[in-house]
Write a protein that binds this DNA or RNA. Structure first.
Length: 590
DNA sequence: GCCGTTTTCGGCCCGACTGTTTTCAGTCG
């Protein structure tokens, strides 16, 4: 555990989120009031998603209770931690059970009741203990643990050791689209089929894929069978009348739900979530004398009396609120905002008219300059910026000064040829070096139409250094866009953790844009930082950072991230028309 | 422990599937 004095920025948020999460698990194993358990878990999620830095808010309980999900009790705990660097309740709680016990909750099929039983009656205190006892068959005497259950536990343990947990959104999307196509080809009677869950909400990583199928009752068996028989299925986790779960070879879990066509909207809404959004919708239904479940919105007193169920908009309408796009359904303030008419018209892929960050064969791209330009023309863009890597990116064939100048010449030459079809901007993705200096001198940057400044190396810097590094880069008068500010790679590398509020404040003052890098590896800015950017008046740039022709399709993920932040097209510079964009670019150099 | 458009107490979402249960508890989403 880090001492609080050196825990910086949102490291504090993460630390406190981890503690509340842990506390909720311990309380659950101790069979505490389930609503109390849920409160700690909810608080943990709230802190993880909090754009603001708790260290900045400080031990001010009045300010802390303003955070949704934090009440008086938890605010006092947070304040205690921020003030003293410790939390007595946490220490006490953690001392009350063996430290290895909460980790058992991660094992599929193992819940708090069974863990408590294993602990109290078999002396199991950790995953290791469980493995040993499972191996020598000494658990069969425990009540409620038959041979089947033990076998399933063995399987879960093997899986937990070998497999990762969350998948990047493009991996989940590929699986979802493939499975949908296969089922449509191979099964009879599918009336509608959609993916739901966090994939539909556009989260940056996905735990499992949910598919919702509308069909008549007579087709259920066949569709379930076709699903279980999909070639990549390695394990059927469960299969009943309306629900089947399988695990694919890649490790990803896919759930299939079968519903009647007239219930499709309710099921789609329910399984799209988020859980928190659903809870709020249900509470809203109850306040209005109705009840909502995956089969529909019904009269509370007469559940047979369906009010809405066939599609999502009719359900929202009956709840007296505008339809809410899935990307916003995170259970924050979206329902209240929708009610007040404050939800913006969210940006769409069609609104994007310019690509402002792309690579060619000059550095590490696969496309030639002309091929890339042609693709951009096909996509209907009015502007394409060519931004190859700068000299320090040796492994990516970064351009030294002489090569960059020749490249610029080539771009300008092609630009005049294609005048009237597309505007080509000669630019660079310039490395922000570890000390915040840029990889080219200003005399060179000055000659470019656009400069995307991004960090690529020294990403393990502490938060303080990362912050001053980015601030220094933003202050450079020739930077146009701050590219993928943290340098993270999802499921692979955490990246830097700068004080994003300070970075965005500087960007706002300088008048430059900050990128949402649409690569599913990056999605950087992430959603809640993009939301913070909007609140602070910083323009967003949604760029694919394309290295290959397929990469241009990643735009969808970047747009979804922007939508999750509540961005409309006025917040995104790629939506400006050609003239407006030129004017904006000029303004960054004023 | 949180929360408030029946608000400071009394609620807090609810159904499917599995396994061991002979009527239901635990887990999951």
């Amino acid at each position: 555990m880090r001492a609080v004095t050196i825990a910086l920025m949102s490291e504090v948020n993460q630390e406190l989120a981890a503690r509340f999460d842990q506390m909720s698990k311990v309380l659950e194993i101790l069979d505490e009031n389930r609503f109390r358990v849920a409160s700690y878990a909810r608080a943990a999620r709230a802190l993880e998603a909090l754009g603001d830095d708790l260290a900045r808010i400080g031990p001010d309980e009045k300010a802390l209770v303003k955070i949704d999900g934090i009440g008086k009790g938890l605010a006092a705990l947070i304040a205690e931690y921020l003030r003293d660097g410790r939390m007595a309740d946490y220490d006490q709680l953690m001392a009350s059970i063996p430290p290895g016990l909460p980790a058992l909750l991660e094992i599929q099929g193992l819940g708090p009741k069974t863990i408590a039983l294993l602990w109290k009656q078999a002396g199991i205190e950790s995953v290791e203990d469980l493995k040993k006892k499972l191996a020598n068959d000494s658990l069969a005497d425990l009540p409620g643990l038959g041979s089947k259950k033990l076998e399933n536990l063995r399987k879960s343990l093997t899986f937990a050791q070998t497999a990762g947990q969350r998948f990047r959104i493009n991996q989940a999307m590929a699986m979802a689209q493939w499975a949908i196509q296969e089922l449509c080809d191979k099964a009879e009677g599918i009336k509608r089929i959609e993916y739901a869950g966090s994939l539909r909400r556009g989260r940056e990583t996905i735990g499992d894929v949910d598919l919702i199928v509308a069909c008549g009752d007579e087709h259920r068996g066949g569709i379930s069978e076709a699903f279980r028989s999909l070639e990549p299925v390695t394990e059927v986790l469960g299969s009943g009348d309306t629900k089947t779960s399988v695990r694919m070879g890649s490790g990803i879990q896919v759930d299939l739900r079968l519903v009647r066509p007239e219930q499709f909207g309710a099921a789609l809404l329910y399984f799209t979530g988020s859980k928190e959004h659903n809870v709020k919708l249900r509470e809203r239904a109850i306040r209005r004398g109705m009840s909502l479940n995956e089969y529909g919105l019904a009269d509370r007193d007469d559940p047979e009396k369906l009010i809405a169920s066939e599609d999502e908009p009719s359900i929202y309408k009956a709840l007296q609120v505008r339809w809410i796009p899935p990307e916003l359904r995170e259970g924050r303030d979206e329902i209240e905002r929708a009610e007040k008419g404050e939800l913006p018209e969210l940006v769409t892929v069609k609104d994007i008219r310019a690509e402002l960050h792309a690579h060619t064969q000059a550095s590490d791209g696969r496309m030639g300059l002309r091929d890339l330009a042609m693709l951009a023309i096909d996509l209907g863009y009015h502007t394409l910026a060519i931004t190859d890597h700068s000299r320090s990116q040796v492994q990516a064939h970064g351009l030294d000064e002489a090569r960059l100048l020749r490249h610029v010449e080539a771009i300008r030459s092609l630009a005049s040829e294609l005048e009237g079809q597309i505007q080509l901007l000669a630019g660079s993705e310039v490395d922000i070096l570890a000390d915040g200096k840029l990889d080219y001198p200003n005399s060179l940057l000055k000659q470019l139409d656009i400069v995307v400044a991004s960090p690529h190396a020294a990403l393990g810097q502490d938060s303080k250094m990362a912050t001053s590094r980015l601030l220094k880069a933003i202050a450079n008068p020739y930077v146009t866009i701050l590219g993928h500010p943290t340098g993270r790679l999802l499921t692979r590398r955490e990246g830097m953790n700068p004080d994003m509020r300070a970075v965005l404040k500087e960007a706002a003052q300088r008048g430059i844009a900050v990128e949402i890098n649409a690569s599913p590896w990056r999605l950087d800015l992430r959603d809640h930082h993009a939301r913070m950017a909007i609140e602070m008046g910083v323009p967003l740039a949604i760029n694919t950072d394309a290295h290959d022709s397929n990469d241009l399709d990643n735009l969808y993920y970047g747009v979804q991230t922007a939508r999750r932040a509540g961005a409309g097209k006025t917040h995104v510079i790629n939506c400006l028309d050609r003239k407006e964009l030129a004017k904006w670019l000029a303004s960054t150099r004023a």
